[in-house]
Nucleic acid binder design. Structure first.
Lengths: 366, 366
DNA sequence: CTGTTAGCGCATTCAT
DNA sequence: ATGAATGCGCTAACAG
């Protein structure tokens, strides 16, 4: 028939075993097995055969035979967000060093997230790292928890990046501490009329940061008008939109209906770097030079915060290290297994107890 | 024994078949099979059983049984580069719509790339998309080509993003056309003493862009001093370093040894956005206000080029669409298969024949 | 329509 | 040290 070398099927273990004149078991041992106990004689023959046939093990077959695969899946809500990009970089790097592959899935909302988790579970990975951040109280929460719990029961590890109050370990940072620090800096630098750009109310990190900022501000005698606290998601676009909105409604700059008794805002405290960057662009769109007329702060210290102008004064978060920590958590759990005491399910892994403030140009003393 | 529900193994197809009182084949048909031909009666029973047991198909087992898996792997050299981030976004989006999963691998150099391809092949994916860009002439090139050819022979599809002159289809853009356009803009805007920031010489896109720019400049009567063409990779850091180097050696600003007979540079043409952004920061570090004293242009139009200040005048590249085109190419090849005429191996897929120039603030008329 | 059977490619006892 | 045999979870003919 037309059974030509048209579509040369990849060589299988059997092929190389046959060509090497050994059993399939022996071939398996030299090519993959851990403690190889084969005579150097046949070892060589197998290797040669494998090379000639250009043998590549079928990862799936190995996985099904072993019952698990050396991979972990990482779920993010948007790869093109520099925040997630940095975290992903850390995850990929750490995983790569351990020889485990990472599959990156993208899930924008809670529904997609649940769906993505189901698909992830189907691949029986060593662990699932979830770096989503919003919607802590979405209705899917229960289903998500159940799904993940079952996954854990089957031997997998679920880890969150940024705590969501779900009973799973989470890599976290001291949000509130960082928020206090940046708020203190704003006050100490002479600003008295701040606007705050926060994320979704369901976003835990946003809430923690907001609480920290508000508390420090309050103790400094600054009462923040509710209208000065702008909603949005943690995105460049929403940071931009929030400031535009403030400007459009006359709240931003000195004038009759402006915030702070008509004096207007003198600082924008964004609870996230990309929002801050969007905000700066919006400020300019309104003829306001950020850093000069209005101070701006961010949160996160993404790579580009150093390249915007004025460069962004922000709270440093060890993004890459967070990704690495998540991987460590997944892999460590596999190694120890039953040896150590079972870690509490909701353990928090702090990669940094006290976030540093990065002083740049967007918040000059005044 | 201690064979408790300690580590509840995930339910298998057999489990649900048993619980539903049907054969494993029937269960498979309702849960996964395409053209299900089962009585509504047993359909319901299987679904219920699956729900109760929280059945999740084992993706690996499916893959090994089918001989292939609904996934494609994407290789990039750095996820945190906004350029790759955008491309990846396109890939993930398009793939997601077709129900195929994307595994993102990171490979920094040619060696890692080859290694990554080998691992990728082991998972027998529908296709492999390579978005690396440098080192077109690395010694690994031959091995890479062989590996990929063999992969194709076994039914897979390899696609490059940005042509590398390897015999595989590639999603490409009109680099030289775009380069000519931006160079023309520079000249027409009144600049006469440009410095050029290019990428690695092995980087094909960089070479094409350089050729375009140089040609237009030459025809405009501008001869570019070799020292005005700075080397580097396509990274923010190298863009920064290149300008710092120019400044340090006194080539940049008017003075005795400066370029262009001591007049110094009046424009920086970066062949890549991130280099341009790094360059702007470096300019500032030398007390030069980019856009005002020295014009700057980029290439690529990454999202952040709109947020830097001055916002970057650049060549728009449909990054997301490029990612989508790549997965279309992979998937289309699978559908048609033998129906259509076999596409030439080195086919170029242009997502945009004539890149648009995005006029912003970094290159004012002078 | 549904159950039986035979693989898929590989890891792994269990003998030898 | 090595080979034969068994099973992993599932799909796909193949018969009923």
């Amino acid at each position: 028939m037309a059974e030509q070398n048209d579509k040369t099927a990849p060589a299988t273990l059997m092929d190389v075993a046959k060509k090497a004149g050994v059993s399939i078991a022996t071939a398996s041992r030299v090519l993959n097995g851990s403690t190889r106990k084969v005579r150097n004689d046949s070892y060589v023959k197998v290797m040669e055969a494998a090379k000639k046939l250009n043998y590549r093990p079928n990862a799936y077959a190995q996985a099904v035979a072993k019952g698990t695969a050396p991979s972990i899946v990482l779920l993010v809500s948007d790869i093109s967000d520099p925040y997630f990009a940095s975290v992903s970089q850390g995850v990929v790097k750490a995983a790569g060093e351990q020889g485990v592959a990472v599959t990156i899935g993208v899930a924008a909302g809670p529904k997609e997230e649940l769906e993505a988790v189901r698909k992830a579970v189907a691949t029986r990975p060593r662990g699932i790292i979830i770096s989503e951040s919003e919607y802590v109280d979405a209705p899917e929460r229960t289903a998500l928890e159940a799904e993940l719990k079952q996954y854990e029961a089957s031997g997998g590890r679920a880890v969150f990046i940024l705590n969501r109050n779900l009973p799973f370990p989470a890599v976290d940072v001291a949000n509130e501490v960082g928020a206090r620090a940046i708020a203190k800096l704003v006050v100490d630098s002479g600003y008295r009329r701040p606007a705050i750009l926060k994320g979704d109310d369901n976003h835990r990190s946003s809430r923690e940061r907001l609480a920290g900022v508000l508390d420090v501000l309050g103790k400094a005698g600054i009462s923040v008008d509710p209208r000065a606290v702008a909603n949005g998601r943690f995105s460049r676009t929403e940071g931009y939109a929030a400031v535009m909105q403030l400007a459009r409604t006359g709240l931003l700059t000195a004038g009759d209906g402006a915030l702070y008794d008509g004096a207007g805002v003198d600082a924008v405290i964004a609870l996230n770097d990309v929002m801050a960057i969007g905000a700066m662009t919006a400020l300019r769109a309104n003829g306001i030079e950020p850093g000069r007329e209005i101070g701006v702060t961010g949160f996160g210290d993404i790579p580009y915060s150093a390249d915007v102008h004025p460069s962004l004064t922000t709270v440093h978060l060890p993004l890459i290290e967070m990704g690495q920590a998540a991987v460590d958590c997944v892999l460590a759990a596999h190694d120890e297994d039953e040896t150590a005491a079972p870690q509490p399910a909701n353990r928090l892994i702090f990669v940094q107890s006290a976030p540093d403030i990065v002083l740049r140009e967007s918040l000059p003393r005044r």
